[in-house]
Amino acid sequence: MQTGEIEAIDYGEQEGDFYIQQVMRTTPYEKTSHFHGNYEIYYLLSGRRNYFIKDTAYTIAAGDLLFINKHDVHKTSVLGSSQHERIVVNFSDSFLGSGHPLFRPELLHVFRRNNHLYRLKPREQWFVEDSFRNMISEIERKEDGFELSIRLILAQLLQFASRLKDGCAAVTDDPLSPTHRKIADVVKHINACYQEKLPLSELSKTFDMSPAYLSRTFKKVTGFTLVSYHNLIRIREAQKLLQETDKKVAEISERVGFEQFAHFNRTFKKTAGMNPLRYRKIFVK
């Protein structure tokens, strides 16, 4: 636990089958840019935050609920006061998969919608918070069948979310501003062309922005530098290839756009916390 943090619950592992954490922070905290192979549900109990998900920047407040699909790049950062409290739930396909008696594929559709944010009404907030409280209660008591109970509560929460309409949420303070639209276009361009070099000078010409303004605005809107975001997308694709193919690491490095293998290795280790060979050994089953 870091200084300025009060944890109410921290159960499971973020990359495991199920994870839930409730924490209050009173000091500045910025989550490093990351992605993972599990689904994520994020609920803000108090305070305000900036959140960048995939290619959209959000301003979130207490009572806001977010759904983040697996492998979507995301980052949270300070907005105003650093004090905030939030609940995060991560779960894998196997935790709520086809073997679950109440599973229906449409339960996961909420993670694939273009909009990630839902601004809940008081009655909806009560239902969501009560769902989390029930999960935490099951974990604390650990009675027989508590994991099944968590699955049932999660399925009910996702069923509730599947009925939420995209129009019920305000995305940002000014979601349709020209600046936000242009930065979203830059993000989409990087996502599509991550194998290319994409120098700042080329991007600034493509999107008709000065290099300095593009660099500064991209960081302000997304929380990433252009270089760090570009590398993150490349490493995400490399991880998929390591898991889903038997291609050699050097071939994967070249395929995702790295000209120097040593640079790929350094960047991969910095992002994933381990080298590519170890990653393949751990995550390929």
Rank of each mutant, 00 (worst) to 15 (best):
N38R: 12
T206Q: 13
L226T: 04
R151W: 00
R48L: 05
N231W: 08
S228Q: 13
G273L: 01
F258A: 09
N38Y: 03
S177C: 00
Q2L: 08
E147Q: 12
L102Q: 13
P28A: 03
K182N: 11
E106F: 06
R86K: 07
D166W: 01
E196I: 00
Y58F: 07
V110F: 12
Y194L: 02
L120G: 13
S137Y: 01
K197F: 04
L232Q: 10
Y42R: 07
S33F: 08
R133Q: 04
H230Y: 00
P211C: 05
G80R: 01
D185F: 03
D173I: 04
H34T: 12
D64Q: 03
F127K: 14
L154H: 06
P122D: 14
G80H: 02
F35C: 06
G37R: 06
R280F: 08
H189Y: 06
A262T: 13
V23T: 14
A169K: 02
L242C: 15
E124W: 10
T56Y: 07
F103E: 06
R216G: 12
D55P: 03
L154I: 06
P175Q: 09
A184G: 04
R234N: 07
S81V: 07
R266E: 14
K70D: 11
H180T: 02
D144C: 06
F283P: 05
K165W: 02
T27L: 14
W126F: 15
E202G: 02
G80M: 00
Q195Y: 03
A8Q: 15
L242Q: 12
R119T: 15
H34W: 04
S215C: 13
G145N: 02
V249H: 01
N90H: 15
L96F: 09
I252M: 10
F264H: 01
L120R: 14
A161L: 04
I183M: 05
A262K: 13
Q83Y: 01
V73G: 08
L107I: 11
R133P: 01
E140L: 11
F224G: 04
E138Y: 00
G47A: 10
H116Y: 04
K31V: 11
R86V: 11
H180S: 01
P178C: 00
P211W: 11
K142G: 15
T245K: 06
R112C: 06
T271P: 02
L164M: 09
S92A: 12
Q21T: 13
S46P: 03
A238V: 10
D185W: 02
M274D: 07
E5F: 00
I153H: 03
E237T: 07
I150Y: 00
D185R: 08
L79G: 04
N50E: 09
F264R: 02
K269S: 15
P105G: 08
L214V: 09
R49T: 14
P175A: 05
G223L: 06
V78P: 01
R49S: 15
F261R: 08
I41C: 09
K188C: 10
Q83T: 14
V128Y: 08
L200T: 07
F146W: 08
L200Q: 02
T245F: 04
K182M: 06
N231A: 03
N265Y: 07
I150C: 07
